[in-house]
């Protein structure tokens, strides 16, 4: 962590749900007044990303994100259970298409996300800086996120060859095992490195043909929510990636318990949170993948979210 971010200190990922934002200053209060005659800046409204659209939360609630100086940077959607459920419906709907897309196509689309990020690098650097990162650290994080996408773009059409097998069974059958995506994945993204952490958690999930509903870092959701814009212009099918902002402590239960989610990736968090997640996940034998360390990129992270399918066929005339 380059610098303590105030917002992050306030809202640890596993902390108790902060009180509704009644006390917080809404964003408009801090909008800078331009000098006479100067142009009034246009500020960005951060929204959710569900089913290829940018809706506001159905709950109508929000929470504020403050910058290092304590000024309110944005009013974020405080995503609800219903938002999450709608996102799962979108993710389930997108699964057939995305999982059946050729490995070559998935690879190109991941590469395309990297291209889009590269083109907007400046925007992400500024966003990270706004939240307290030094310019140098912010720039490094953005380039690492881009490189991470390129890395997994390259794996999308290769992991199958590394991890599948032809099995020499003793009977007269041809037998082979291949990987298939586990399905719909929910992701509680890392609170560290709001952009890179998010991208590093997300890329192996979608490189493997899964669809996903992700919760952005609560402390600094801005880059993840902005990342939706890069996704949106990258031929990622609508619904394949859905991104929510909100309180992790409030949404964790739903991310873990939803019966139409096949796996949950938990980045960071503590043992107490993990126990709750694992207990709820058991309701539908959900796979629980815990990511404790940031900065590990390898195809085993893709493998974590794959099922092995073995097919038998007789050999004969």
């Amino acid at each position: 962590m380059e610098k303590t971010i105030k917002a992050e200190a306030r809202a640890a990922d596993t902390g108790s749900t902060p009180a509704p934002s009644a006390a917080a200053k809404p964003k408009a209060a801090k909008a800078s007044k331009p000098a006479s005659g100067a142009r009034l800046g246009i500020e960005k409204t951060y929204k959710l990303y569900i089913g290829g659209k940018f809706p506001r939360t159905e709950s109508g609630r929000y929470f504020t994100v403050e910058d290092a100086k304590g000024d309110v940077v944005a009013n974020m959607c405080r995503g609800s259970r219903k938002d999450f459920r709608e996102a799962v419906v979108a993710a389930r709907g997108a699964l057939n298409g995305w999982s059946a897309a050729s490995a070559y196509l998935r690879s190109q689309i991941l590469y395309r996300i990297a291209e889009m990020l590269e083109g907007r690098a400046e925007q992400y650097v500024l966003e990270l800086q706004q939240m307290g990162a030094t310019k140098r650290a912010a720039a490094k994080e953005v380039t690492e996120a881009i490189d991470c996408l390129v890395y997994y773009a390259g794996w999308a059409d290769k992991y199958q060859q590394i991890f599948s097998s032809v099995n020499p069974v003793a009977s007269s059958h041809f037998n082979f095992s291949i990987l298939e995506p586990v399905g719909v994945v929910s992701l509680l993204a890392s609170k560290e490195k709001a952009l890179l952490g998010f991208v590093a958690d997300l890329a192996p999930i979608i490189a493997g043909g899964n669809t996903v509903v992700a919760l952005a870092s609560e402390a600094n959701p801005l880059p993840a929510i902005s990342f939706a814009e890069a996704l949106h212009s990258s031929d990622v099918p609508a619904g394949a990636v859905n991104i929510l902002s909100g309180y992790r402590s409030e949404l964790t239960e739903h991310f873990a318990s939803h019966m139409d989610v096949n796996a949950i990736v938990v980045s960071g968090g503590d043992v107490k949170e993990r126990k709750v997640i694992q207990e709820l996940a058991a309701n539908n034998i959900k796979r629980v993948i815990v990511r404790k360390k940031l900065g590990v990129y390898d195809p085993y992270q893709i493998l974590d979210l794959q099922e092995t399918k073995t097919t038998w066929h007789p050999i004969g005339g």
């Binding site: 069974v169 003793a170 037998n175 095992s177 399905g183 034998i285 073995t310």
Partner: peptide, 11 residues
Amino acid sequence: DPTSPFGGYKE
């Protein structure tokens, strides 16, 4: 067969 992986999806 011992060489053939076995196990389930979903529940």
